[in-house]
Design a protein around this nucleic acid. Structure first.
Lengths: 285, 285
DNA sequence: TAGTGGTCTAGACCACACC
DNA sequence: GTGTGGTCTAGACCACTAT
């Protein structure tokens, strides 16, 4: 029995807050007392202590090392902001380093229902399925799953997917000119297998990209599903908000000038125009 | 003692896989056996069973309802793809519904070190800090934290932040014309407080937006930090990949034509140009 | 009242790192 | 060896929902 109960406050919460303070007062890489020591010190059981630590690990404040101990996470794990280009509406951090790819799987299979639908081919049609790990400076950065209609890329080899630019290969070797892509981005968490491949804890934050690319004729060329590490990848964009000379066509409601992640309409009823809001950082240091 | 040990396989993993199969064979909203029943059925303790379920809840496959039971999650919680606009490089799902805002906090405080630096003002300078909850059809969608130099918006009231377009207000009431913004997006997970406000479980996937907006003179106007629910928000973009008439200036290395989330260079050495890769969906149904 | 999920405990065994 | 994190158990009490 835990003797006194501190009321409706979760012990886990109390422990977590205690650890947050402790971490703040230390430098990156500093060791944290052992789990058992903390248990005794805080008067909680080890599973409870671990539950609290789990949250801080997922949040990226603490790192655990099996057999060694727990440590304050190395500074901000997330990469510094960086900008490139000027015109593009969206750029991404240079992620300084050299990119490499390692093919995990390369096989010809049937498209199946969903992929067939996406690629506008029969579910029985063959596709080349490629899974590859993308690395930056040797560190895992993302997992990519590619589906390409097999008929489009005869003779494609795994080596092709580790060396060059796939779009150039499509153009030079197969006479396919990619034209446009529709891509969606959403946040998710890593599964067990994904975590292992990316060298991050299970349930770590990650970005899920899904992309369908088409050629000039609107014919689907490829369907991509990729997962990027949340602690090392970040999307940065420069947005032009006002063009005091281009009063924006203002089509109708709000479909006119949207910007990434800027919600449409700030009113209770969905009014139009560009609507951006301002805010600030959270109490996190 | 657990009697026989099924080898190096985590019990949690076995339970999780069992539940995944069970969920797949059922329809959305169907009830799942109680925790205690599953424990007996699978021969594991309740904490172990719960650890497995936790992952599926975080992943969005299962929903728990206190005092009622566990159920198969309602279809895909994530919103369907949607597109609007045509020219903008980035659009977002219409998220059909009406947006509303509820001010959680409105106060005038000192900027502090980090915010002062971002806004290019003294750390001792006063700013208006506003936290607000953004709702779609009455359902929480995001939490926004805004920091605006107080000198720029004399007489600003909380009501101003619940009704109209903030940028229009800046222009009409304070003579400030926003010009551009630099915004970053990264995945994260919800904290305890955030989860409560957004009505999602703790450690749910979410998108973290950070934005610094400036006026025509490059003077910082606002600094935003907002958190969007990962299960209801998704960014969609249409990307033009090839302009067979615009061979792209090709500035130098790779800074020329990047697109959202498309990693630069596919080679081991960071080569330039547009580099897009293809992939496919994961085994998840 | 009875059943559900939510939390917590005390102790155990294992795998790994360091001495 | 000792100490660390990683996993698991059996049982307890609570809060909530239904009947």
């Amino acid at each position: 029995m835990g003797a006194e109960d501190s009321g409706p406050v979760l012990k886990r919460t109390r422990v977590r807050d205690y650890l947050r303070n402790l971490v703040e007062s230390q430098a990156a890489g500093d060791p944290i007392p052992s789990e058992r020591a903390l248990c005794e010190q805080l008067g909680v059981s080890r599973p409870t202590l671990r539950a609290a630590v789990d949250e801080l690990v997922t949040t990226g404040l603490i790192v655990r090392e099996h057999g060694r101990g727990m440590f304050v996470a190395p500074a901000k794990i997330t990469q510094e902001l960086a900008m490139a280009g000027e015109d593009s509406a969206f750029v991404l951090p240079r992620a300084a380093g050299s990119w490499a790819s390692r093919v995990l799987e390369f096989s010809v299979i049937q498209a199946g229902a969903r992929v067939g639908r996406k690629l506008h081919i029969s579910p029985a049609a063959e596709i080349v399925y490629i899974a590859r790990l993308r690395l930056v400076d040797g560190e895992p950065m993302a997992i990519e799953h590619l589906h390409v209609p097999a008929a489009l890329v005869p003779g494609l080899t795994p080596a092709d997917m580790e060396s060059g630019d796939f779009y150039e290969l499509l153009r030079d070797q197969h006479g396919i000119q990619v034209h446009q892509a529709v891509q969606s981005i959403e946040p998710t968490v890593t599964s067990e297998r994904e975590a292992r491949l990316l060298s991050v804890p299970v349930l770590s934050p990650a970005l899920l990209f899904e992309r369908l690319t088409t050629d000039g004729a609107g014919r689907p060329v490829e369907y991509v599903h990729s997962l990027y590490r949340g602690d090392r990848y970040r999307i940065v964009s420069r947005i032009s908000l006002a063009d005091p000379g281009h009063p924006a066509p203002a089509t109708d409601q709000d479909a006119s000038r949207h910007h990434p992640g800027i919600p449409p309409g700030d009113l209770t009823s969905g009014a139009g125009g560009r609507t951006v809001t301002v805010g600030d950082v959270q109490p996190t240091p």
